[in-house]
Design a protein around this nucleic acid. Structure first.
Lengths: 235, 235
DNA sequence: ATCGATATTCAGAAAATCTTAAGATTTTCA
DNA sequence: TGAAAATCTTAAGATTTTCTGAATATCGAT
């Protein structure tokens, strides 16, 4: 994804947590600066070129909120706050001001990694001189999908798709030439929520898509059914 | 119907829980190794090729945390921890070190299955994307099988195979030069479901395959019958 | 020639998908 | 804020495709 590994700062006085985060992020090939207190962290912020910071809200010396503020005085990179239980978020909403995201403990490793990547992606996208201008565009054989505007046109004519429909079509298109199972589609579009036993929902949306694209289930030009496997769009 | 069923280890001293998990996952066609104590589990880890482990944190002999550590010494597959009540997670956050996810009891079956699948998906994605890009393709003497698109072509002409037919042909091709018995075929394609003593079902599919490939049983170019043993495709 | 293994055929069963529509939820807008 | 509109989800029945098992025919080794 990135040519050079991002530098990530992690501060938490619960050493187990900090160590845990370190393990997972190192595993993703990031370069980690880890501290168990605020002072050392501040020092690091001064001297290192960081790409992202993960701060525990509650620290014995300098709390995460203060650190975040000090980061914001000079830097623009994303900050993710680590907070205690879900229920307490309300009370500390103010504390997360200036942060870009927050994660509640206990957190799932996957969630952490996903959030980190999301923030890095967002940051590098807005800040890199030469962004992937085409990343948000898919176009082939008369079909154009624009992720930015969420618009879709087919042979110059605009299709008004619902968000879900757009997402499904996007996933199918970005996997063009490959069969995508209903289950996979569901996970890509709805996230890793639990899914209901029937994949009928996906099917209904596929139907709506075909309808709007003037496509048929029997002789589809675009979304083809692969029996027993899933759906695909030909390459 | 999966080509390879994942091997899943489940360890819990509460037999009811372990049994329950076993039932749900077997129902999803996974192959289950179930143990009620840590020692047997450790033994299994040594000797079996596992794809995922579900470990109860509290075990009478060796606790789940230790097992997880021992897994991590040699293996990289996902580990999901089973913990007691939600409220107690704080206390044991440290114990989930090295695990990829955790589930609190009591859990809902769908949630369990969703989590297991999510982990397997993540794992197989990270572990198969790079190294063997061509793994999804089998091609020789005019026959091409593409796992990605689930397409099969014979001398440039497309054969429209049913899911089962495709699977059977895939298994035969990936074992090219070796005789595969009907029973083996059955297990590879259908998983560990019942094996009806009459292997006629396999035979019928073989026939359909031969038909679609314009192959004959008497002088087969592709799928050859090895009397008393099974079928094979010449190398 | 005989016997067990493999082939063929085909119709009913099972499974997957499609369609439709109603109720639930979310979003929009006055 | 509350009502209307749009969207999503779920369920049930229809349809299509695929699978299976029984009956019968054929093959191959001895």
């Amino acid at each position: 994804m990135t040519l050079l590994a991002a530098n990530i700062l992690i501060v938490d006085d619960e050493q187990a947590i900090a160590d845990l985060v370190e393990v997972y992020l190192k595993n993703e090939n990031y370069h980690i600066f880890k501290f168990y207190n605020g002072k050392d962290a501040l020092n690091c912020i001064e001297n290192e070129k960081l790409d992202l910071a993960i701060l525990d809200v509650m620290l014995p010396d300098v709390d995460g909120f203060s650190i975040c503020q000090q980061i914001r005085e000079k830097h623009n990179f994303p900050v993710i706050m680590l907070t205690a239980k879900e229920e307490e978020i309300d009370k500390i909403t103010g504390l997360t001001l200036g942060a870009d995201d927050y994660i509640t403990k206990p957190f799932r490793p996957l969630e952490l990694i996903a959030r980190v990547k999301a923030q890095l992606r967002r940051f590098t996208k807005y800040n890199s001189a030469e962004p992937n201008q085409e990343e948000h565009l898919i176009a082939f054989s008369g079909l154009v999908l624009d992720m930015k505007t969420h618009e879709c046109t087919l042979n110059e004519k605009k299709l008004s798709l619902t968000p879900t429909e757009f997402s499904i079509l996007w996933v199918l298109c970005s996997n063009r030439g490959r069969v995508v199972s209903s289950e996979e589609l569901f996970h890509e579009v709805w996230g890793d929520k639990y899914f209901s036993n029937s994949n009928n929902t996906v099917m209904v949306h596929i139907r709506h898509l075909r309808e709007k694209m003037h496509d048929s289930a029997e002789h589809p030009k675009y979304i083809k059914t692969v029996w027993g496997i899933g759906y695909k769009i030909e390459k």
